[in-house]
Computed example of a mutant assay.
Amino acid sequence: MMIKRTIVSAVFAFAAGIVSAADFPKGDSASARVFMELHSIQRLSGVLTPLLTVPGGAFRIVEGDLLALGNLRIRLVGIEAPEVAQLCNSAQGDSWECAAEAEDRIRDVLRTAERIECFSNDRDSYGHYLASCKADGLDVGGLLVAEGLVWPDQEQGYYQPEAAQAQAASRGIWQAETPSPSDWRRQQD
């Protein structure tokens, strides 16, 4: 019985990939495509289930990439938000509170959403769930990268098209040379 379920799940997963890839308009980001394919697979095969589905406003924002719901901690996968004490450089040569702005933006997105879904199958070394979250169908990590409020995680390789567009438009963190959060932490030691 378990083998049958695995085979059926694999067939549904393959079909979901074909169907959902055909539904995307040209120019859609690869990260959104992957996320939507995972969501389609979850719906068709029942293999992946959301870590949680909650109404908007349910989360508390710990940092620009870390959410809390009670004792549950979720780190948004694929992004690096500015550290709480980190300032970002502006085009005018001064600095701005990029960490606070990233936190405010994610708070607004999650607060105004009717439904938030987070998908996870892994945890980090601190026990936080590593998850992709959607607010009313909008990929939260991709939005923050596209608006220039967070960096894409270079090791994971997500959100590169969104980062390139934000950088080309000199949005947010890309308006002047600013160290990434990992580089900033090294400079503080």
Rank of each mutant, 00 (worst) to 15 (best):
S45V: 01
H39C: 10
F35S: 15
L52I: 10
K134A: 15
P161D: 01
L149E: 05
R171Q: 14
A176W: 01
F59P: 06
P152C: 03
D104I: 09
L44S: 06
R185I: 14
V54R: 09
F14A: 13
V54A: 07
P25C: 09
F35K: 14
A164Y: 03
L110W: 06
G141Y: 13
T6V: 13
G157D: 07
S95W: 04
R75G: 09
W96D: 15
K26E: 13
E162Y: 08
R60H: 06
S180V: 04
G46D: 01
D28L: 10
V77Q: 12
E177Y: 04
E63Y: 11
E37P: 03
A21M: 09
K134Q: 10
D189W: 05
Q188M: 12
S29Q: 06
G172D: 07
R123Y: 01
Q42H: 12
G148M: 02
A10R: 15
W174R: 01
R75H: 11
A102G: 01
Y129L: 01
R105G: 03
K26M: 09
D122F: 00
Q187F: 08
T49I: 07
P50L: 11
R105E: 08
W96P: 07
S9P: 00
T49R: 11
Q86P: 00
W96T: 14
R60G: 05
A68I: 07
A81C: 00
W96N: 12
R171L: 15
C88P: 03
E117N: 02
P179E: 07
T53A: 15
S120W: 02
V8C: 09
A99K: 01
R105D: 04
A22K: 04
T53L: 14
Q156H: 12
Q165S: 13
A135K: 10
E83R: 14
V54G: 00
G17S: 07
R43Y: 03
E63P: 00
D94M: 08
E97G: 05
K26Y: 09
G137H: 06
R171V: 10
Y126T: 11
L110I: 09
V109Q: 07
T49G: 01
R186Y: 04
L149F: 00
G127N: 14
F12W: 13
F24S: 10
A163N: 08
L110F: 04
E117S: 04
D136I: 03
E97L: 08
D124E: 08
E177C: 05
Q154Y: 05
I7F: 11
C98L: 15
E114H: 08
D23H: 07
W96I: 13
W151G: 04
A99F: 02
D139Y: 13
G70T: 06
A100G: 12
V145Q: 04
H128Y: 14
V47G: 08
L67I: 02
I79N: 02
Y158C: 08
T178K: 02
D136V: 02
S125Y: 11
Y159S: 07
K134V: 14
S125A: 11
A16M: 04
V8F: 14
I79C: 03
P25M: 11
V77A: 14
D122Q: 10
R60K: 07
G64T: 02
S180C: 02
S180E: 03
D28G: 05
R60Y: 04
H39V: 15
S90N: 12
V150E: 04
E103Q: 10
E114W: 06
V54F: 10
P82K: 00
E162C: 11
A85N: 12
A102C: 01
A58R: 06
D122T: 09
V8K: 15
